[in-house]
Design a protein around this nucleic acid. Structure first.
Lengths: 235, 235
DNA sequence: CAGTGGTCTAGACCACTAC
DNA sequence: TAGTGGTCTAGACCACTGC
């Protein structure tokens, strides 16, 4: 095989194999050392190609496990007009939710401010991770004021929390403030999704207001290549 | 100076200097080779530290020019409730706009579909770049149907296009469909912002509907570490 | 335990920027 | 032209995963 002397060439070759379907979405790429040998390049070169394709959203890695072909993005309305599970079904994709923890705790300082909590006041804190078609792509960290959501932790927390708020607690009309930014994952967050510390993610923060008062804060971290947000507005 | 043998240590040291204010926002970091020598590490190690901090949004690079300390993010409402210039002023930041091109052209296929154009129908295409506090952070590519925006290219295109639509063309009520995703910059896009091909960006696509008909498509590419989007919704 | 990616060294040359 | 980051080689050892 003729050596491909630049990482762009290596990337282009892999890209062609992905687009042609030779490498199917979700399948594992050859190991870095195999690629070096097969393409006649150094390992740094091969790795640079991988990082480039990762940036393009064409491949992703599971920490120390290998590189995989990325599936198509998941389209999602961050203002929660529809349930995320319904959205997944509508696009023919499988959504899996796992509860990581649910307990009383004092949240991070930024959340304390938003919820206007007393200094050491605790809230119901729920963290979950979600997989689309078998890949962990979303980490959720939600904080609920106890006075607005009494005995929340005794409920079933594996389904839609939005539906729970509406049906169990009767919050029909909610105002939202949504913030979206690029954000790297912390070590702990990354571990839950099986990716590297610092992996790029989209961070979505939802401030839930009922009668002008903030009763809950929800934070979502989506792997950057897994999601497209779509919403409606007007002027 | 004691050698810092891992890139995490190198990154931590730089991070401390940035947080302490020794390295001020916008200022240039020492060159990679200077850092290698000063800290007693190899250049790969130093570069890995830079890439790590870049991912954290703490520093950014101008292509082949050097590394700089990143300023704080710019907060912005993508549904355009307010003019971006007003938002900038409200946060005490300086916004500069440069018109890159304004001409009739046939847009990319995806835009043709959204605007429901005839096969080779042209639209008014406007591209601009914008700087916040002197750093180019935003590239805009806008496409306007000629029948909805006649003689648009003869107007002043350096100000708010939203205001122009409202005042000159009388579009008071507009529905928007907004899509937000992570996206790497193409070579050409990257050049306009003086960054590397493939740099991570947030892509914002705005579909402007008047009476249920799509009359304009606006695409924005923001450098990933420069922006936080904030919007309001309700259920 | 074998295989993977993650980290690291000590060099080298190239393309481009700023002056 | 000097200095920058961008690319590349040919190795090495480590930490972790999966069997």
């Amino acid at each position: 095989m003729t050596p491909l002397s630049t990482y762009h060439a290596v990337a282009a070759r892999l890209q062609a194999e992905i687009r042609s379907g030779e490498l199917a979405p979700g399948s594992k790429l050859p190991s870095e050392r195999q690629l070096c040998e097969r393409l006649g390049v150094s390992r740094v070169n091969a790795r640079d190609a991988m990082h480039y394709l990762e940036g393009q959203g064409l491949i992703y890695r599971l920490n120390r496990r290998g590189w995989y072909v990325a599936p198509s993005v998941f389209i999602y309305d961050p203002t929660r007009s529809h349930s995320i599970r319904d959205e997944a079904q509508a696009h023919g994709r499988h959504l899996h939710t796992e509860l990581l923890s649910a307990r009383q705790e004092t949240p991070p300082q930024a959340v304390v401010s938003l919820l206007q909590l007393a200094p050491r006041e605790a809230v119901a804190a729920i963290s979950r991770r979600r997989a689309v078609d078998g890949r962990w792509v979303l980490l959720e960290l939600c904080y609920f004021r106890n006075d607005a959501f009494p005995r929340l932790l005794e409920e079933d927390l594996t389904g839609s929390l939005t539906a729970l708020a509406r049906q169990r607690y009767g919050y029909q009309h909610r105002e939202l403030v949504v913030r979206i930014a690029s954000s790297p994952l912390s070590e702990q967050q990354a571990q839950h999704l099986h990716v590297r510390d610092g992996s790029p993610a989209l961070r979505l923060e939802r401030e839930v207001l009922v009668d002008g008062r903030c009763v809950a804060v929800e934070r979502e971290y989506w792997l950057h290549d897994a999601i497209e947000m779509q919403l409606r507005g007007h002027t």
